[in-house]
Write a protein that binds this DNA or RNA. Sequence first.
DNA 1: CATGAATGAGACTTCATTCAT
DNA 2: TATGAATGAAGTCTCATTCAT
Lengths: 205, 205, 205, 205
Amino acid sequence: MVGEEPRAMRRRPTQDRSRATVERILDAGRSVLLERGFEGASTNRIAAAAGVGPGSLYQYFPDKEAILDRVVERAVDDLEARITRAFLGSLRAGDDAVRGHLEALLDALVAEADLVRVLSQDRPRTVGRRRVGFARRIDALVAGALLAEHPDAGDVPVDAVAWMLVRTVEHVTISWVLEAPDVGREAMLDELTALVGGYLRRRWG
Amino acid sequence: MVGEEPRAMRRRPTQDRSRATVERILDAGRSVLLERGFEGASTNRIAAAAGVGPGSLYQYFPDKEAILDRVVERAVDDLEARITRAFLGSLRAGDDAVRGHLEALLDALVAEADLVRVLSQDRPRTVGRRRVGFARRIDALVAGALLAEHPDAGDVPVDAVAWMLVRTVEHVTISWVLEAPDVGREAMLDELTALVGGYLRRRWG
Amino acid sequence: MVGEEPRAMRRRPTQDRSRATVERILDAGRSVLLERGFEGASTNRIAAAAGVGPGSLYQYFPDKEAILDRVVERAVDDLEARITRAFLGSLRAGDDAVRGHLEALLDALVAEADLVRVLSQDRPRTVGRRRVGFARRIDALVAGALLAEHPDAGDVPVDAVAWMLVRTVEHVTISWVLEAPDVGREAMLDELTALVGGYLRRRWG
Amino acid sequence: MVGEEPRAMRRRPTQDRSRATVERILDAGRSVLLERGFEGASTNRIAAAAGVGPGSLYQYFPDKEAILDRVVERAVDDLEARITRAFLGSLRAGDDAVRGHLEALLDALVAEADLVRVLSQDRPRTVGRRRVGFARRIDALVAGALLAEHPDAGDVPVDAVAWMLVRTVEHVTISWVLEAPDVGREAMLDELTALVGGYLRRRWG
DNA sequence: CATGAATGAGACTTCATTCAT
DNA sequence: TATGAATGAAGTCTCATTCAT
């Protein structure tokens, strides 16, 4: 393979032991991140949690940022997988279907509330890009589902609709998980269903 | 008793020079925050930017956190004032009115894009509270406007509707400012208008 | 009067207000010293407790050391006065008399336990001299009393006896106040009486 | 769990280089302490004297206090060893034996006069405990010796006698070393011998 | 490959002291 | 005289990173 990236990884782990070490480092990074946030995620702490010397981190990563980048990337991938699974079977229209999808999404977020909290609150400048990347992949997913549902898009700007829906649902659900507001789970789902359903009907109804 | 130490502010600035110094510190804090983010907002840097010695910060603030808290508080208040002005004249119903309000909100956010970026991306654990407080004040504002518009709420859960609307509009507009996505300004406003209008109509139509 | 000491006091307080200010500063110094120890006795804190600006301290004292020196000097004088009073009526011989004196001394120390504790434990290098001065004055007092009691000293080295007695009684009583050991007050007084009485009898008996 | 932090010592020095560094730090701590007292014993100064970076101190000690604690502990142990050696062969009664013991003790203190001076004069609040602990160990030693000498204690309160003797001898000898008073060495030893001998005779004679 | 001791810049904070008002 | 705002050196401690072993 060509195109090695010297900044992203000093040594491509070809041997099994190496791969295992990288794994331990990333797992440790995730633990530390969840327990102490970005501020508390020091290299020494990650190394200690991984059971390796601080020097070993630099065998596999050029600097601290690269470690956390990779940790966040993985965490976001996990979350994305969970969320994607929640939407398996296509995005059907109709309020009942919409509500079902939203429930599944909410469950996925609640199951990873700690992670969601860390990613939403702490993230330093350098790690920010990941989240947008994540949302964009979901955008594409949703746009595809909308097109599958309504093959004749007419003059509806499908990409814009998908973008809007994803931002809306993402933030409303995350806010609900983080804020624990006075709005109950069912009430929130009712309203969000109405919001999304109303929008879709307006666009395609 | 000897040596009492107030927590919020060491010395209430009664004299003119004091007030000016506090002002310079907070302005410097805002500059540094916008230019280098929370990570780069060190006390030494803020002091240097304010043209005062590092010790002077502690004449007026008990610690770094208090400085940044106050900087963020002011910035959020600014933003809130802008946004509130954008909604002067009540929240009228109807797509045209909705769209007008959204445009005004968007303009307010665009005018402070850097600030919005820092507040959305960087904020360390300790400074977090302000944002939720901010959103909650807007919640109340919007709930009031909705009730004024529709005195007979029927069985519509006005608080939940307001909460939902605020989260939705906040995040969609902020995301648009931060992500600069492929969705144009007009398209975004069209869609957001449709989203909000459809929701309101569904609830009260 | 000649022989002014420029280091000890910048301005001899001739006016009443000045004297009152010095008084307030020294009182405040004593309070702060008792409440926070030498480590916590900062100029700012003393000034605040005295109700004057930090700059005013330097109208009357050349530096912090001079303030604490004077505070300690006064405190030691107080203590010395108490102790001297405890010995009024001459130092009589005989166990009963000895024990009576010791009780009086112990009461004086107990009454100022906080002060004794601070002076015994914290004192920075620069303030140390005072204590020796204090003890030396007591030495002379005791030597005088011994001579009055036994005019024919013979070849007894009265000064050495006084020196020894003062060190012994001082430290035993102070240790008892500070350590709160398992030895009760009466037992301690019994033993100290035996110690001192035995010594005196051996020297003059 | 992630990131445990032992309090007493961050890293147990298993390797030789580590042990050597700890040794250098403690030696440097002792030097700085003797030369500049507790006030001047800053971490930077200790690190410089040890020829290590300031950060290295914190590889082995959790904070400054722990360093000085250990330095004092070692110094006190040294002193205790010297003193204990001075009393080898049991504490015999009789003026000659008493005087012999006292001479040995005095020599031990004179040999470490600088250390005695620092420990007696400077010690900040936080490092204080050691000294009392030290004295208490000597108490037990002396009480044991007294009992061995006089198996039939009768109604003599041996613990109180030991406590009194230790405080007396400790302070008289230390005062003599520190004050360098007009009392000569031989005179002081004579008087202290008389004091202790008279006391013992009175109690058991 | 791995270690972990060592580094040293830089973080936050305190405080004795000065000086314009 | 008195003030108190301002100073800035110095203090304690952290942490990303390096390098001899």
